[in-house]
Amino acid sequence: MATLRIYNELCKGAEECGICLYVCKEEVFQPSETMNQKGYRPPVIVNEDQCTQCENCMIFCPDLAIVVSEKKQKKGSQ
């Protein structure tokens, strides 16, 4: 299962908003040229392997457009 998912239609653009690119320490996201229906350019996931599942992008995203899967250790500890 994928670690990350971006809801492209909810995103308001890496150029206009760009909070996910700022809060991600591992540079998982990159701006892209693909436009969504509303005319914004959502970021693309480039190094998903680098993702530490810190959930920063998910927590900061103002449009609830990013999901990060839960940490495996967290599930084990419960």
């Binding site: 239609e9 909810l10 206009e16 760009g18 103002p62 449009d63």
Partner: peptide, 13 residues
């Protein structure tokens, strides 16, 4: 279908 905030608005957070 989507939030009514401007791009980058803190209200979504």
């Amino acid at each position: 279908t989507h939030s009514s905030f401007c791009p980058g608005c803190g209200d979504g957070t």
